[in-house]
Simulated assay, not measured.
Amino acid sequence: MIKYIFVDLDGTFLDSNKQVSKDCVQFIKDLKKQYDVHFGIASGRALTSLLPLVQKQELDEIIDVIVANNGAEILDWESKKIINLPFVQKEEIQIILNTFQNWKGLTICFHNKNKLFASRTTERILGIQRFNNEEYLSNPLKNNSYLSTPRVMLILDKPVDEEYVKKIRTVSFEGLTSCRSENDVYEFMNKETSKANGIKQYVTQRDSSLDEVMVFGDSDNDIEMLKECKLGIAMKNARPMIQNVSDDITYKTNDEEGVMDYLLHHIDLFERVIEG
């Protein structure tokens, strides 16, 4: 039986307007009450941007855990305890900076203790700063006061330039892994950090395993959890590469409440709570 459901947010649980319907929230609330199931978020977003969203969309009523920063941070919602998986260390950040600082068409940026470091100041970077409620903007090529970070991001000026992305993919660093998390974002993380490992960390502490986990996703940074968890469900709106590694595909897109619709069709996956 499935005991845990984890959903990616952007392109999966959220619609194109970054909203979740009240019907969907109520459905998950009822599902948790009637069946022996826990509900979590597995997102590439930083906790600083996730927490306001959770409150605004009233997801605090349904979530048990947040796996943030592609697995680098795991927040147990009830205890508010945060567990960290390995970060990208300062020396590794500097190697990435040295490698990409002269590449045209991208900005290198990363979060560090509620501050955003970025190699260029662009509207996209300022938007990330506002989105994450960070204190100030600083160029890491001139200011090396940063320490470790969950991930180093390359923000692309032209997100649809697939040849440029292919060129980035040829670059690798010892001890790090990489993925494309959004159309215009390519990022590097510690090789032990992923959404799948973040989920595994959470469920194993509860004497469970990935064999009891169902996940929904749509992007490259969801591939590992789609492959490693018992049931990996790709969204109808996901790219073919993502759908090809999944166990199944939703019947509807994220703009059509695809997650809720799929769960309604497969309610037999869960064990009903016996009251009394």
Rank of each mutant, 00 (worst) to 15 (best):
M1F: 11
Y4G: 05
F6C: 10
L9H: 10
S16Y: 08
S16R: 06
Q19D: 15
S21F: 02
Q26G: 07
L31F: 12
K33R: 12
Q34Y: 11
Q34R: 13
Y35E: 03
F39W: 09
I41D: 07
I41F: 07
A42H: 00
S43R: 06
G44R: 02
R45C: 03
T48P: 06
S49L: 05
V54Q: 06
K56V: 05
K56D: 08
E58K: 10
E61D: 12
G71Y: 12
G71D: 08
A72Q: 09
L75I: 08
K80C: 07
K81N: 12
Q101K: 15
W103A: 13
N112P: 04
E123H: 12
G127D: 07
I128Q: 02
I128N: 00
Q129E: 04
E135T: 13
Y136K: 13
Y146H: 01
L147A: 14
S148C: 09
L154Y: 01
K158R: 14
V160D: 14
Y164W: 08
V165R: 03
I168S: 05
V171K: 09
F173M: 04
E174C: 09
E174I: 11
E182N: 12
K195H: 05
Q201D: 08
Y202N: 05
V203L: 01
S208T: 12
L210I: 02
D211T: 09
G217N: 00
L226M: 09
E228H: 10
K230Y: 15
A234W: 10
M235H: 06
N237L: 04
R239L: 15
D247I: 03
I249H: 09
Y251F: 14
V259H: 04
M260H: 13
Y262W: 15
Y262G: 15
R272L: 13
E275S: 12
